[in-house]
């Protein structure tokens, strides 16, 4: 536990003392809950269609695969045509692309980013490294199976997959969302303890709340 996260007593500028407990005061530790779909089937289908046609990606490149996302923003591939946009903040993003190898240090940030995204949210594993470690299969510092730590909806294989493969992956994800099969956020909430156990097994300096929205 980092020192600044511990409970402490602070003296204010005009003399009064008060207790600060950062994990409770600054974060919310309420666990995620399974979110039911909309009340009516027609409404849920409309929402699913809108979600599939408006995918906002978190601009967070975790590994070398992030280089394959840049051409998608430029004239050659122009993913904006398909309703795909990049957002700079996890609050507004729906899709987290784990682009390539994921070191344990980055995994911590990925978990926090993922938990700050709003449901429904999707995860794409890009490249072989997210499936079995790829060329980092014997590395002491990268995770081997992304699915143990985050609920992955879709893998795009290759080392590296080309931007065309990414576009095809987006189309597959769209079909999954429209069919109502991309419920990763609910899987995460339902199996929360299992995911946390796995995450804490590799992250030894766990100095953050268990869940931060």
């Amino acid at each position: 536990m980092k020192k600044e996260l511990e409970k402490r007593t602070v003296t204010g500028p005009d003399g009064q003392t008060f207790e600060v407990e950062p994990l409770i005061d600054y974060y919310c530790e309420a666990h995620p809950t399974v979110q039911p779909p909309a009340y009516s089937k027609i409404i849920e289908n409309l929402f699913n269609w809108a979600r599939s046609e408006s995918i906002w990606i978190l601009g967070f490149g975790t590994g070398c695969g992030a280089i394959e996302m840049r051409p998608l923003m430029t004239p050659r591939f122009d993913a904006y045509r398909y309703g795909i946009q990049w957002r700079p903040t996890p609050r507004q993003a729906n899709l987290l692309i784990i682009s390539g190898y994921l070191s344990v240090k980055t995994l911590k940030r990925v978990i926090r980013s993922y938990e700050q995204m709003q449901s429904p949210k999707y995860v794409i594993g890009l490249g072989s490294c997210t499936i079995n470690g790829g060329m980092y299969w014997d590395s002491y510092n990268t995770i081997k199976r992304l699915d143990d730590y985050l609920p992955v909806d879709l893998y795009i294989v290759g080392c590296m997959p080309r931007p065309e493969a990414l576009l095809e992956g987006f189309n597959t994800l769209k079909r999954m969302i429209r069919a109502g099969n991309a419920e990763g956020a609910n899987t995460y909430a339902a199996n929360f303890d299992w995911y946390k156990t796995n995450q804490k097994r590799v992250i030894h300096d766990w100095d953050m709340p268990d869940y931060n929205w």
Binding site: F47, S54, N94, Q118, S119
Partner: peptide, 8 residues
């Protein structure tokens, strides 16, 4: 529509 339709 999508942003109004997010669940959380």
């Amino acid at each position: 529509i999508k942003n109004y339709g997010l669940r959380t």
